[in-house]
Simulated assay, not measured.
Amino acid sequence: MGFDEKGNEIPETEHTGKLATEAESGVEKVSNVTRRMSESSIAVTEEEDDDEERKIELGPQCTLKEQLEKDKDDESLRRWKEQLLGSVDMESVGETLEPEVKIVTLAIKAAGRPDIVLPIPEGGNPKGSWFTLKEGSAYSLMFTFQVSHNIVSGLKYTNTVWKTGIKVDSTKEMLGTFSPQAEAYTHEMPEETTPSGLFARGTYAAKSKFVDDDNKCYLEINYTFDIKKDWL
């Protein structure tokens, strides 16, 4: 998901790849979006391999209790850790090394209409078109997630979109580092606008992922969506 309301192609950055339409030689064409594709068509691409190649070698993981014990004589570090951990119940997190992130809800927000609540599919592959967007409309993605067991570092959301077998959109949003807590965290993506016009309409294939600094994937969804003249 990601569209430039002015219809200009934007070089890929941390949050990029807006879907756009442009006129060339008197023919309107889409430089960023797609039709339905088979599962083999949305297999790992060269662009997605970039994340694998950029994996950072991090130090050994520690439990929360071990983290608090480290550098306990450093007052500034101790205060920073207490601020990060907040009111974490140390008895409930125990000695678990691996953090766990659960995506609780996914929704598409658009002004003047009810939110589109997206059911999170078992196995990560919704059947048929997952949702429909109206051409030329502003929207934003909002999700909630829970963190348990340990601190999750560098959690980020990525989304890639294809049309006619070509990658047309790539979005990366760094969410941050989160401590475990009972309450869910909420994050809303920046507002974007779908393209409009005959060649902007159709079915698109996409892949969304939530991963952390260790490249641990907490949710991966392969799906299709439609852009049509109106909301359905």
Rank of each mutant, 00 (worst) to 15 (best):
D4V: 03
G7I: 02
G17S: 11
L19V: 09
E22H: 13
A23P: 00
A23G: 06
G26T: 01
V27A: 13
V30T: 12
M37H: 11
M37E: 10
S38R: 13
E39L: 12
E39R: 14
S40T: 13
A43S: 14
V44F: 11
V44D: 06
T45E: 01
T45Q: 08
E47Y: 11
K55L: 11
G59C: 09
Q61G: 15
C62Q: 15
T63K: 09
K65Q: 15
L68W: 05
K72Y: 14
K72Q: 12
R78K: 15
R78F: 09
E82K: 15
E82S: 13
Q83C: 08
G86V: 07
M90N: 05
G94I: 08
G94C: 09
G94T: 09
E98I: 03
P99L: 08
P99D: 05
P99V: 04
E100H: 15
I103F: 08
I103Q: 03
T105R: 15
T105H: 11
A107G: 06
A110Q: 14
A111C: 02
A111P: 00
A111F: 07
D115L: 01
D115F: 01
V117D: 05
V117C: 06
P119I: 03
I120G: 04
G123D: 08
P126G: 09
S129E: 07
L133K: 02
E135C: 03
S137H: 12
A138Q: 09
A138M: 04
Y139T: 04
S140K: 15
F143Q: 00
T144I: 01
F145M: 07
F145H: 05
F145C: 06
Q146M: 10
H149G: 00
H149F: 11
S153T: 08
S153L: 09
S153W: 11
Y157K: 12
Y157C: 08
T158E: 06
V161G: 00
V161D: 01
G165T: 06
I166T: 13
V168E: 00
V168R: 06
D169N: 12
S170G: 07
T171S: 12
G176P: 01
Q181S: 10
Q181V: 04
Q181I: 01
A182M: 10
E183H: 11
E183Q: 15
E183I: 05
A184M: 06
A184N: 14
Y185P: 02
H187C: 09
H187P: 00
E188F: 03
E188A: 13
M189Y: 02
M189T: 12
E191R: 13
E192I: 10
T193D: 00
F199E: 13
A200N: 01
R201A: 03
Y204K: 08
K207F: 03
K207Q: 11
F210T: 01
V211M: 14
D214Q: 12
C217D: 04
E220V: 10
E220Q: 13
T224F: 06
D226M: 07
D226N: 14
D226H: 05
